[in-house]
Each structure stands twice: as structure tokens, then as C-alpha cells.
Design a protein around this nucleic acid. Structure first.
Length: 563
RNA sequence: UGACCUAUGGUGUAACGGUAGCACAAAAGUUUUUGGUACUUUCGGUCUAGGUUCGAAUCCUGGUAGGUCAACCA
């Protein structure tokens, strides 16, 4: 009995970061406090990879009763803009997380970080270096060859103090001097070979304006910001692993609160690119229509495409957290989306590629109001009326003059059910002079209203439709992967990664939707029966809706037909 | 050929010295007024060579493969 119960209680295993946190909690480290942060640089829009990090950081805090700060890493004024700050806040919010009043900026701490630099100078472990960027780089050696000490390495503390103060005062030209840490020019870790701490930049900062002309490097700011905010667990991606010894060195030299940095593997997705640099290039090069183009893996793009925060959070949960490089198949993201939308999206009927059907025995001019179920997964969603008449559109794919075996849809002589309507049987096919089918003539069975026949005869196929007279014209935007190749970064010599872009990633169609869709709210989501999930675009206007196809329904017929 | 990190089905991820499990994908089937959903079943895995151990995916050593690091970017 006991054993049986234990067997059934499935223990969800902890990922390695949760294990670290729980161990710290057991040891009462940090007085049992868990405090994380999400630290984006405001130089681009957030993408699905950031979403993983956001869910991780905020999720950790909420699981262990802690807090998460939002902190902008704005130490490089030449790349950072307010527009990005705004979009990042919106996206984190939309994903469903709150940083309360803990919105911080690395630039908030510039004065303190400056003092930290002075402390290092006074300890004799930082110096002003007048080598050029190139000279510093070559002087650093290579991973296998030790670096050479800078000729400025042994200046006196007084001289360093004076020079650094004058750098701050704006006495020197951009690029003429930097402040460097004095650590170990022959360290096997390149980051310990006297890294640059401060550089001169006469750039306008989006928050501090022109009050500074020297700016700390990321490496000399990030760890200290964590420390100042008393972050207990500083979660970041793998590439910062080799920086950790440097951060720990700063913590020791400065004797400040030691945040613990933990690195995890960033998210990669098939059929898309994730680097900020490449996403920026897609936007600025007009390969897509902005950061929120529904084909973009950005949070704003996914939102406009029709993704829900719930689906993205579920996805972030399912991909796991570990240290090995990974590429997640995009079908997992799509699966999480369908799972969510299936439960929540109301069903509607829309015809993307219309084929006219004339019901030859339909009473002239008559209109029937049929009941349609809004969501079979949720009876509380109720029903709606859909007008039916003698002239309809059906999907071109739902008629074949010469159908293969197992084709359940309409064909000459065949009978199908019109969803929520009647059984119809094809009696004639009308073609134009070029042989293109322009109309299909059918008879309907009045006894089958609603979709059941009193004689109990079965039809295999059920197809969707709209009444021509009542249909609303709409625009449908159909999306596919932005890239043809599973890994767009896998390119041959001389090829550009953009060569792998999918020329058919967006198709715009004039389509027909049922009248209940005439007025929709932006981002309102529907399942167009048998077609997929669609989300109203912000380009929609009253009476002229625009729908983005978020994702198709799974389609086992097309798979079968392909064989 | 330096340092650091990583290696489990097609893709992810568990198993913490004791039966290699789960999800997605793929395949087959049942149900169905969405060829949707739901449900059932199947396929398929510990990089390699040694060592420790009664017992190794797990610990140790060597190899191999992949990743990261040589911005006054983050």
C-alpha cells in the first residue's frame, strides 16, 4: 500500500540550478534568501532565448520565495536606446512576470563602480594604460603564448590616481587611455591578462546623459551590480564561465558581497537564428518588417504571431536547464502552443482558397441560421449562429475531380457533411474554357440539418464553408519558417547566412470568413476549423480583419497523401 | 596545439554507485460532426578504451568529438 502510493507520486526532478539553490537553502547560505535578476542590455529586442532566461530567473525566485530584479546592463552608451528599454519591460511583463519596484540600471551604480576602480588603484592592482587597442590586444598574447606586460604597468599609485581622475574629467581623447586591472599576463585564462576596466567614450548615455565620459566595461560592472543588489544566484549563459575567475577576483579585491554565478546553456531553435546581431541585421536590412514581424523569434514577434505567454512559459519549462549545448526542435514550441490554444481558442469557419458551391435544390433566397459550437473543449464557450444559403465557398483542397483512395472530401458523386450544416452530394462540375473548375454543383439533403442523417447513414468527411452572401472579406497572412535550413548558421564557404532565408516565409491571401469575425480585437485568437490557429493582427480595421496564421493544425492527411 | 566546459534514443531532458525513465518527433491503431482533440501501442539511447567496485550512464585515468575564451561589445 505504502510502496504503491510512493510509486504513483511522481517526483519532479530538479535541474542543476535548483539543486544548487536547495543546497544553499539547506546550509542557510545568505540567511535562506534567494534573489535573482534578469540583466538584459537594452540594445535590441528580447527573443525566445531570453524568455528561457526570464522564466528561469523569475521562476527560481517564485519557487523559493525570493525576488527577481530587472536590471539593464547599460554600460555601453553607443549601442543602447530607450526604445529597447521600453520593449524589454513590455515583453517581461507580457510573459507574466513582475519585478515590482526593482527596476535597476548598471548606470545607477556608475559612481560606486568608479570608487571601486579607485580602490583597486590604491591597492596597486589597477593602472592607467596608454597602449592602443591593437597594442593591448597583441600584448595579451594568445591562449598558448603568454602576454607581455604593458610598459605602463608599474606606474605609481599617485600617478594612476591622477591620470584616472583626469580621464574622468575629460582631459584625454577617446581611445587614448584605459584603466586596466593588474593581474597576471601569463594566466592561461585570457580574461586574467590585465583586462580593461574603464574606457573613455564621449557618448551621450540614454540615462546619465553627458555626465560621464568614462564607462566601465561589462566585466567590471556586472558582478559588482549583482553584489550591490545582493543577488544570491547570478544565472547567466555558458560563455561567461571563463569570466567567473575574474569576477571572483574583483569580489575578493573589493571585499564585497559574493554573488554566486551559475552558467547554463542558452536556447537554440531549429529553423531560426537567435543572435542579437543577426536579428538586428534582419530588421535594419528590411529582410523582415520590424522587430515584431510575426516570423521573428522575438517575444514581440511571437506575440504578434499569436503565441500566448502560457505557451512560451510551458515551453521554457519543457526544454529544461542544463550545461550542454542544445538545439530545440521548433515543433516543440508549436506543440506547446497548440496544447494551449486548443483549450482556449474559439472555433470559427474561414475559407482561405475559395471554390464556389451551388446547392441546386436549395430554396431560392432562403437563409438558414445554424448553431455552431464555439469550443468543443470548453462547453462554457457556448454556441453561435452561422448563416447558410444556396451559394457557399468551400476550400479548393476539399474538392477533387479525380480523388485518390481514402480521400474523404467532396468529389463527383460523393457525399460530405458541411460542418454544422447539411450533407451535400456533388452532381456537377463546371469549368471555364481553360478547363479550370469554377463551380461545383451539389444537392443537399434537408433531413440532415445540423449534420446528422435520420436514416443513420455515415459520411466520412466533414468540411468547412462560408455562405458567400454573408461572408466577410479578410486578409490572411500565412507564415512558414524564416529559414529553409534547420541550422541557418551551417553555411558553406562564401555563403551568407541570409542566403538560407525562406522566400515563402510569408504569403498574404484574400480570404473569406464567417460574419461573426467582421469585428475583432487585435491579438484575439481563433481556431479556423481544419486550418489552424489564427490571431487578429494590429492591422485589422472594423469590417476588414487581418489574421496571422499562428500555427497550422496537425494534418495527418497531408502526411498520408504525400506518401 | 593553453585554460575552462560538455558528451544518455532523431531532438531535449531524468536517473546522484543498484530495473536507463519522461516529453516532443516518427510509426501503427481506437474514438470522432475538425483527417483537430483525446486515448492505446510500437520504434529507438548511455562517445571510446582502460581502471575502481559484488555492481558504473554515474567514480578515476587516457583518448575522441563538440563548445567557449585572445573587443577599449555584452
Amino acid at each position: 500500500m505504502e510502496a504503491n502510493r510512493e510509486e504513483k507520486e511522481e517526483v519532479k526532478s530538479l535541474h542543476f540550478i535548483e539543486q544548487i539553490v536547495e543546497e544553499d537553502l539547506r546550509n542557510n547560505k545568505n540567511d535562506g534568501r534567494v534573489h535573482t535578476r534578469f540583466p538584459p542590455e537594452p540594445n535590441g529586442y528580447l527573443h525566445i532565448g531570453h524568455a528561457k532566461s526570464i522564466c528561469l530567473n523569475f521562476g527560481l525566485a517564485s519557487k523559493y520565495n525570493g525576488k527577481t530584479n530587472l536590471r539593464f546592463d547599460d554600460t555601453n552608451p553607443s549601442k543602447e536606446e530607450q526604445e529597447y528599454v521600453d520593449s524589454i519591460k513590455q515583453d517581461v511583463n507580457w510573459l507574466g512576470f513582475s519585478w515590482d519596484d526593482r527596476e535597476y540600471y548598471a548606470s545607477d551604480y556608475f559612481a560606486t563602480i568608479y570608487d571601486y576602480a579607485v580602490t583597486l588603484i590604491k591597492k596597486g592592482v589597477a593602472y592607467v594604460c596608454e597602449l592602443s587597442a591593437d597594442e593591448i590586444s597583441t600584448g595579451r598574447g594568445t591562449p598558448t603564448v603568454p602576454g607581455q606586460p604593458s610598459p605602463f604597468r608599474n606606474r605609481t599609485i599617485e600617478e594612476n590616481l591622477d591620470l584616472f581622475a583626469r580621464m574622468k574629467a575629460g582631459e584625454f581623447a577617446e581611445g587614448s587611455k584605459v584603466l586596466r586591472a593588474k593581474i597576471d599576463m601569463s594566466s592561461p585564462n585570457m580574461h586574467m591578462r590585465d583586462p580593461v576596466l574603464y574606457r573613455i567614450m564621449f557618448a551621450h548615455h540614454h540615462r546619465t546623459g553627458d555626465s560621464w565620459c568614462i564607462y566601465p566595461m561589462y566585466d567590471f560592472a556586472h558582478g559588482q551590480c549583482d553584489s550591490l543588489e545582493r543577488i544570491t544566484h547570478s544565472v547567466c549563459t555558458l560563455e561567461f564561465e571563463v569570466h567567473r575567475p575574474l569576477y571572483d577576483w574583483f569580489i575578493r579585491q573589493l571585499d564585497i558581497f559574493p554573488s554566486r554565478q551559475i552558467e547554463f546553456a542558452r536556447l537554440n531553435l531549429t529553423y531560426t537564428v537567435m543572435s542579437k546581431r543577426k536579428l538586428l541585421e534582419l530588421v535594419t536590412g528590411n529582410y523582415v518588417n520590424g522587430w515584431d514581424d510575426p516570423r521573428m523569434p522575438t517575444i514581440s514577434g511571437l506575440r504578434r504571431r499569436g503565441y500566448t505567454p502560457e505557451a512560451i512559459r510551458e515551453f521554457a519549462d519543457r526544454v529544461g536547464v542544463a550545461k550542454r549545448d542544445n538545439t530545440i526542435e521548433i515543433v516543440l514550441l508549436e506543440h506547446c502552443l497548440r496544447e494551449d490554444l486548443n483549450k482556449r481558442a474559439e472555433r470559427r469557419m474561414a475559407v482561405l482558397k475559395p471554390l464556389k458551391v451551388v446547392i441546386v435544390n436549395w430554396p431560392e433566397g432562403e437563409v438558414d441560421e445554424l448553431d455552431a459550437i464555439n469550443n468543443p473543449e470548453n462547453p462554457a464557450a457556448g454556441t453561435r449562429k452561422v448563416p447558410f444559403s444556396g451559394e457557399l465557398y468551400i476550400e479548393q483542397d476539399d474538392f477533387m475531380e479525380d480523388p485518390p483512395k481514402k480521400y474523404y472530401r467532396l468529389a463527383p458523386g460523393a457525399e460530405v457533411r458541411l460542418r454544422y450544416g447539411y450533407f451535400i452530394r456533388c452532381v456537377d462540375v463546371i469549368k471555364d474554357e481553360r478547363g479550370v473548375i469554377t463551380e461545383v454543383h451539389c444537392t443537399y439533403d434537408p433531413e440532415t440539418r445540423g449534420g446528422n442523417s435520420p436514416d443513420g447513414r455515415k459520411v466520412q468527411g466533414t468540411i468547412h464553408w462560408v455562405s458567400i452572401k454573408h461572408a466577410v472579406k479578410a486578409e490572411a497572412r500565412l507564415y512558414e519558417h524564416l529559414f529553409i535550413k534547420e541550422n541557418p548558421d551551417d553555411i558553406a564557404e562564401g555563403e551568407d547566412w541570409k542566403d538560407g532565408m525562406n522566400p515563402d516565409s510569408m504569403k498574404t491571401l484574400e480570404c473569406f470568413v464567417e460574419p461573426s469575425l467582421a469585428n475583432v480585437e487585435s491579438l484575439q485568437k481563433f481556431q479556423f476549423e481544419r486550418l489552424g490557429y489564427f490571431s487578429a493582427d494590429l492591422d485589422s480595421v472594423s469590417g476588414k480583419p487581418v489574421f496571422n496564421r499562428t500555427v497550422t493544425l496537425k494534418d495527418s492527411w497531408s502526411k498520408m497523401a504525400a506518401k
